[in-house]
Design a protein around this nucleic acid. Structure first.
Lengths: 353, 353
DNA sequence: TTGAAAGCGCTAACAT
DNA sequence: ATGTTAGCGCTTTCAA
């Protein structure tokens, strides 16, 4: 009655009292159930408006056991690919009335595992989407994933980890890398070098891309020995440093296939600083087709994954698993596309010569 | 007792029963309260481990009225600045044990308002961080913000909207734009053009940056009339198109001050395609210092906001307001820095000549 | 220091 | 078609 009542929330019972009906009826109206007489419905609606009632979603979730939230785990949002993936997930989830909690793993397998474990028990989310670079099959084996995934739906985004018992969606990394490499070879390059994946135990994604690279090279009768150079991480800076060294070496490459656009970006910068022309002297291809890649100079040839399909499929799988309990782990493969720009075909640079 | 019991969650009562104590005692142990005898504590701990008990955070939040979640609203995660801001917020929040829900507004004032309204009632989050371009002072006036902000703490990130009754944290956009413009002028440029802000009702941030630009130009005795060119949006593509036209016009600029790095990136690309040298013919400065900007060719001069401080202050203000109810709206100003690279000083390009 | 019991606000059996 | 009621799992007065 007092306008300055200290912010006591209006509850469903208050509405029921105001309308002179039972909580049950109010609930029915709020949730749009059938079997409510029009008269009742309007009366209750009026009370809802009058009291400015808003259902407490926390309470509803506690009762129903589902929250309408999912957790997205990515290594690092400052990496364009993951930001763009997050964007896509947020958009698709929004269409489904689901909101997305985002957390960063730093790409560290231990942290990924810990955060997954945590999420599995957390009751905050209906499921988890994990985009992982670092989590190789070895790590997955070590986890009690079977037990976890029965309680909490988990979908792996991006990398294919054969041994996993989790759902997975991504592109065929081997084929995509094969396509990019073949493109470089068809541009007349012979001393192609693959760039990416940390020097030590290589992550699953890099391994697959390296496989594709090796196959394409071998198929073309080119040697693969010493044709892969690791980077300490996936940063632009590491690529820049590595490429600077590489071009100073005994047998400098005439093409670079980078396992991400960030790496390619660092490579382009290194070549620019060395006064090496792209693609005239060295052709460069990347992976992921970050938004900025078309605007680099020269524009970067890259592999574009169908991120929309990744996000959409992942969410579908999540909610399917939430219902049908005992599905076997599924693998969804979405399409990719080789986007050719100046960094490999020379169109933009011939303009200058 | 049966290993295949269908995933019934272990509750606090189960632990209590197992340990032969009351729920109260278990709760005390879980929450690390004092006044629990060591013997009791170890006994309860043992039961917790034995049953692999995990507290239901949903129930806890329902009871306590706080969730440990915040909502971050940004226009678009594919824009590097917002992704990097989100990264910073997620990191800082993580240090506080808070998780971040992310949603995208598309920069649309209507959507921003709707999502704020929604969040204010939602009980899912302890507060909202809103990073807004589109929400000008006009829109804020139209909202019932006073009423909202008493229920739900809201902190505005990035732009200063004078009329707002909400907390705000950001840099001094006028001073920063002034600094960037002055830098261009000191590089000997006279036909400087400011680029950004949609053509119609300009957003608050762009307006402030434009003010700083105008002041610097005027202070240097340079004309400001016709020296601002709007872009349809903040995309690289719009800048590219606008700059292409601009350079074809009657009095082409010899410097561009872009209101974001994305715009600058599009501008650089347009100049590259036109065969115009940067910075020899045209100097370019951006705003936000996106991670990629140092790797563009030439490297982009830009204004770097202290994003860490923005995130940290915003979270502090949020939780202060959650406790002390009746604080007046506060304005926190964090530092910025002009990062000079080749796009304005020519260092990298002289290498080529 | 620990126990008993009352809710937080909602939904869904069960009853009418 | 609507009312009654028992919880979801937790915290937290109030007692002891």
């Amino acid at each position: 009655m007092n306008d300055r009542t200290p912010a006591k929330a209006v509850t469903l019972r208050d509405v029921a009292a105001h309308a002179g009906v039972s909580p049950r009826t109010v609930s029915n109206v709020v949730n749009g159930f059938a079997h409510v007489s029009p008269a009742m419905r309007t009366k209750v609606q009026a009370s809802i408006e009058a009291l400015r009632y808003r259902p407490n979603l926390l309470a509803r979730s506690l009762r129903q056991g589902r929250t309408g939230h999912i957790l997205l785990l990515v290594p690092d949002l400052t990496v364009a690919y993951f930001a763009e993936l997050a964007h896509e997930v947020v958009e698709r989830a929004g269409e489904l009335g689901t909101t997305v909690m985002v957390d960063e793993t730093g790409g560290d397998a231990g942290r990924e595992r810990a955060m997954l474990d945590d999420a599995a028990e957390s009751s905050w989310v209906d499921g988890v989407l994990l985009s992982s670079l670092g989590l190789g099959s070895t790590d997955l084996d070590g986890m009690d994933l079977a037990g976890m995934s029965t309680r909490m739906p988990v979908v792996l985004l991006g990398e294919r980890t054969a041994s996993s018992s989790l759902d997975h969606v991504g592109i065929d990394n081997v084929a995509a890398a094969h396509a990019a490499t073949t493109h470089l070879i068809e541009c007349g390059r012979t001393r192609v070098v693959a760039l990416g994946g940390n020097g030590g135990p290589i992550d699953a994604t890099s391994q697959l891309r390296l496989d594709g690279f090796n196959r394409a090279m071998t198929a073309a009768g080119l040697p693969v020995a010493g044709r892969h150079v690791g980077t300490p991480d996936y940063s632009r800076e590491s690529a820049r440093a590595v490429v600077t060294d590489l071009m100073d070496g005994p047998e400098p490459p005439d093409a670079l296939f980078c396992f991400s656009d960030d790496l390619a970006c660092g490579a382009l910068r290194a070549l620019y600083d060395l006064g090496i022309r792209v693609p005239t002297d060295v052709a460069v291809a990347g992976f992921d087709d970050a938004g900025v890649s078309a605007y680099l100079t020269p524009g970067l040839t890259s592999i574009r994954q169908d991120r929309t399909a990744i996000a959409r499929s992942a969410l579908e799988m999540l909610y399917e698993r939430k219902s049908g309990h005992e599905l076997p782990p599924r693998d969804v493969t979405v399409s990719y596309e080789l986007v050719v720009r100046e960094s490999t075909n020379g169109a933009a640079v011939t303009r200058r010569s």
